[in-house]
Design a protein around this nucleic acid. Structure first.
Ligand SMILES: [Mn+2]
Ligand SMILES: [Mn+2]
Ligand SMILES: [Mn+2]
Ligand SMILES: [Mn+2]
Lengths: 224, 224
DNA sequence: ATGAACACTTTGATTATTCAAAATAAATAT
DNA sequence: ATATTTATTTTGAATAATCAAAGTGTTCAT
């Protein structure tokens, strides 16, 4: 109950939430992964997770991993909501580049009060996704799950729309912007070459762009 | 050099700066006062101040008190600048009440980056004072010192303009707003009664308002 | 001067968070 | 089935920040 409000706890909870999403079954997330995401050594993660479990925020099975409890998930979603609304504000109202807002939001997500958040949300017109296409958890109620697949799983000839960028690294986002691979943009899959480990796409009549599969894995798209 | 960036250090430095302003001579500020302002016990203040002195942020004379070094003052002014720009933003762009923005800014002042600060500053049109009339330290260069005296030192019959409210307590600010005692408002001093410990003022043709001297002490005014 | 009062400092603990290195368990390979 | 490798957990130690209570130095009043 206590740790809920510290920046540290918020980060652990938020990261665990995101890890759960990815490898989503009901399988616990190995603490090594959590440690990586949070940026601490594995031993530290073990120590902290045991504490959060004691606080009723996570469920922990030694050697297997951790999962958020409903209570922990509630906190995590709150942090994620603040993070994404802040990012949206920074881009739309302060004109920061979308490649740099993640870092800013990583700090501000812990400093914005409920009241300020509500005002920002209203000012932005209650957005449902952040600048990278990630869904903004609603203040109340469940978050919409949009079905998307990575660009790397598309077939040549398909026409898809960029929905969401999964990597927050400034370099990656900068590149994606340069290539025009931003949410809501339609692209045509020119070629998928598993052997060359590459995907070639084309936006309108621009010159085709080729990406490695690892990068294409981070770009989620939907049909039409 | 290390502590400069922690929230705790920023608070100590900022509070010390403000205390220095008030009792300004070059006299050191007793640690008891600093402890009060920061909200810790005196022993804690002693411990911390010794550390900050070691970091070259404060100069400390046991039993007498502490002063900021030029380096410490630079940090303090930065925090104050962030605090006041954030307050101004919260009032002017998010529409929060001026009585509640201080608390919000107390947290956000530690989370806003230089880049975000610059954008906010530009968005606000480079304001020179915050909603309570306090001067916003400029990004570079010295802060302007405006001469003002407390409402409590005015004489009956004088016409003065409210310049700045020194108390950040929501209750006080709420009251001041109700009475119309906000920066840039002209008021007439109806009566100053030292014995009754009261000052009566009048704004335009509203009904006169009477304040205790303690409250009037927190309201700084200038002539004309 | 002499002893209160008062202010400030020290001391001894505590909580939160983290790391490095040693210990252990689980999974893999031979 | 071993031996080896890899993932996790434990242990022992820091650092930052804080408090309560005991100790000291100063200031004041008589
Ligand atoms: Mn982000
Ligand atoms: Mn964060
Ligand atoms: Mn303020
Ligand atoms: Mn603060």
């Amino acid at each position: 109950m206590a740790r809920t409000q510290t920046t540290t706890a918020q980060n652990y909870l938020k990261e665990l939430y995101q890890l759960q999403q990815r490898s989503d079954g009901h399988a616990p997330v190995p603490l090594g992964q959590l440690a990586d995401s949070v940026g601490v050594t594995p031993g530290t993660a073990t120590t902290m997770v045991k504490r959060f479990a004691g606080d009723g925020l996570m469920r922990y099975t030694p050697r297997r991993g951790a999962r958020l409890t409903p209570k922990g998930e509630k906190v995590a979603l709150g942090v994620l909501r603040r993070h994404r609304i802040v990012e949206t504000f920074l881009v739309q109202h302060l004109g920061l580049d979308w490649s740099e807002v993640h870092e800013e939001a990583e700090v501000l997500e812990h400093a914005v009060s409920e009241k300020v958040l509500d005002r920002l949300d209203a000012l932005l017109g209650h957005p449902t996704t952040d600048p990278h296409g990630s869904p903004i958890p609603p203040a109340h109620g469940k978050m919409q799950r949009v079905a998307m697949r990575p660009l790397s799983r598309c077939k040549a000839g398909q026409r898809v729309t960029i929905g969401r960028l999964l990597d927050t690294a400034p370099g990656f986002l900068k590149l994606a912007e340069t290539l025009g691979l931003v949410p809501d943009t339609q692209v045509r899959i020119v070629e998928v070459n598993e052997d060359a480990d590459a995907v070639t796409v084309r936006i309108g009549r621009r010159k085709p762009a080729t990406l490695g599969l690892a990068a294409a894995d981070k770009i989620m798209v939907s049909n039409d």
